[in-house]
Design a protein around this nucleic acid. Structure first.
Lengths: 242, 242
DNA sequence: TAGTGGTCTAGACCACTGG
DNA sequence: CAGTGGTCTAGACCACTAA
C-alpha cells in the first residue's frame, strides 16, 4: 500500500517525463494527443490534463490550442526566481529617504545619457537624500507622449510607473536592469559632492510595455560604499519534483 | 454574444475577487466551501476549483486540505520574476573567460572577508581572465565539511554548487545577492592591477540549503567600467488578469 | 467523525489551428 | 473541415483537519 501515496497524475507525469528523457518523445515534436494518452495509460482525460499541466509548469512541454502539445525540453529545469510584489520594491530605502525633483525638460533621444528609441523624451533630474545627505543622483526619461503623467511627478507621492498605468493604461511587462561600477557623469559627481572622474554604482533600468516598447528609463548613480543593491533568489521548483 | 468570451471560471474568479476586495470575504477568514460556492453560483465543482486555483496563483487565497480556503490578501499583487534556468546563469561571460584557481586553504570564519557562520571554512582564491586580462578577483568560501568537493574544484570544469549537489546531495534553496561599488580589498586591487583604495564592483553571493544553512559564499570584485551585471524582470501575472 | 479540499471518472461541447 | 487543446458538468471516493 505504500507505493500508492502519489496521485495518479503525478505518476503519469513522471512516466511521460521519463519517456521524454529517454527520447521516446523527441524535443520539438508533438506529444501524443490527450485522448491518445488516455487510451495508452488507461486514465481519464482530467488525469492526463493534470499531468500535462505539471509538465508544462516545469517547462518540459507547451500546449497550443487547436495544434497540440510540443516537447520543449528533455529535462525539467530548476528555476530560481527573484520575486517582488511590485516594482517599487526595486527601490530600497524608500522609507527613510526623500526624493527631490530638480529640473524637468523635453529633450531629444540623442541627448540622453542612456540609449533610447528616437523621438522626444522628458528628462527629470532628481536627487535622493538620506538624512540630509545626497544618497543618489537620478535621471528619469519618459516618452514625451505621456506628458500628463510627467507634470504630476513632483506633486504626488506616487511612483511614476503607477501614474503611467493610471493615466494611460500602460502595463509594465518587462524591466531590464544593468548594474555596474562606472565613472560618474559630471553632473552626478557634482551633485553627490564627489570629484570628477569618481567611480560610483550605476543602476540602469529600462521599462517595456506589453508591446515591448520602451517607455521609461531610469539612471541612478550612487557614491561608493554607501549603498548596496540586495536581492534574494528562491528555488521555485527543482527537477526533484518528478 | 460578445461578453461571453471569457471562460466561466475566470468570470467566477473575478466575482470572488471583487467580493474579497469589497470586504464581503475578509482577509484571514475562510472563503465559503467549494460546495457552497457551487450552490451559490450554480456551477460545477470543477469550475469552482479552477476559479479558486486562479485566485491561489494570484496570492489572493490559500487552500489547506481538510481545513478550508483562507483569504490571504485583499488584492492580487503584480509579481515580477527574475527567472534563470540554473545557477550558473548568474555567472555571465563564462563562455569567453577562464577561471584560474590560486590558493586553497582552511581558515576560521573570522578570517573571511564576508560574514560567515562560525566554524572552519575552505577559502579558494581565484582570478577570472578575459582575453588574457584579469577581469575579476574572487574568493569562494565553502563549509569545511565538504572537503571532498573542494579538492575537485580545480580539476574539473564543473560549477562548485553542482559538485556539492552530486557529492553531498545539497539542494541550493536560496541565494542572496548583494551588489555594490566598494573600495577593493588590497589583494583584489593588486590582482587586478589597480592602485590600493580603488573602487570596484563587488558581488557577494551567499548560498543556503533547504535547512536555511549557509554552506557557500562567493565574493567577486570587478574593476570599474569593464563589467556590468545584467538581468531581466518579467511580469509573471498582474492584477489585470482579473 | 463530520466536513474540508484533493483526486478521478465519463462524457459533452466549445474555440482554435491547420490543411 | 477534422482534430487539437480548453472548458464544463455531475457524480464519486480519498486524504486530511479539527472538534
Amino acid at each position: 500500500m505504500l507505493p500508492d501515496r502519489k496521485p495518479l497524475y503525478i505518476v503519469l507525469a513522471e512516466k511521460i517525463a521519463r519517456a521524454i528523457e529517454d527520447g521516446v518523445y523527441q524535443v520539438g515534436e508533438f506529444l501524443p494527443t490527450e485522448v491518445q494518452l488516455c487510451d495508452e495509460y488507461k486514465v481519464s482525460r482530467t488525469t492526463v490534463r493534470e499531468a500535462v499541466r505539471v509538465l508544462q509548469e516545469l517547462g518540459v512541454v507547451s500546449r497550443k490550442q487547436g495544434s497540440g502539445t510540443v516537447v520543449e525540453a528533455r529535462k525539467a529545469r530548476s528555476k530560481y526566481v527573484f520575486e517582488i510584489d511590485a516594482i517599487p520594491d526595486l527601490w530600497q530605502y524608500v522609507e527613510s529617504t526623500e526624493l527631490k525633483v530638480g529640473t524637468t525638460r523635453l529633450i531629444a533621444h540623442s541627448e540622453a545619457l542612456v540609449p533610447l528609441p528616437s523621438g522626444q523624451w522628458y528628462l527629470i533630474e532628481a536627487i535622493r537624500y538620506l538624512d540630509g545627505e545626497p544618497l543618489a543622483w537620478k535621471h528619469v526619461y519618459i516618452d514625451a507622449r505621456y506628458d500628463m503623467a510627467v507634470q504630476e511627478v513632483g506633486t504626488r507621492r506616487v511612483p511614476i510607473y503607477s501614474l503611467l498605468e493610471q493615466r494611460y493604461g500602460i502595463k509594465t511587462e518587462r524591466i531590464h536592469q544593468s548594474i555596474g561600477a562606472v565613472t560618474m557623469p559630471a553632473p552626478a559627481a557634482i551633485a553627490l559632492g564627489m570629484v570628477e572622474g569618481s567611480i560610483g554604482l550605476e543602476i540602469l533600468r529600462t521599462y517595456y510595455d506589453d508591446n515591448q516598447k520602451l517607455f521609461e528609463a531610469t539612471l541612478t548613480i550612487y557614491p561608493p560604499n554607501r549603498f548596496k543593491y540586495d536581492n534574494e533568489l528562491k528555488l521555485q521548483y527543482g527537477s526533484a519534483a518528478l
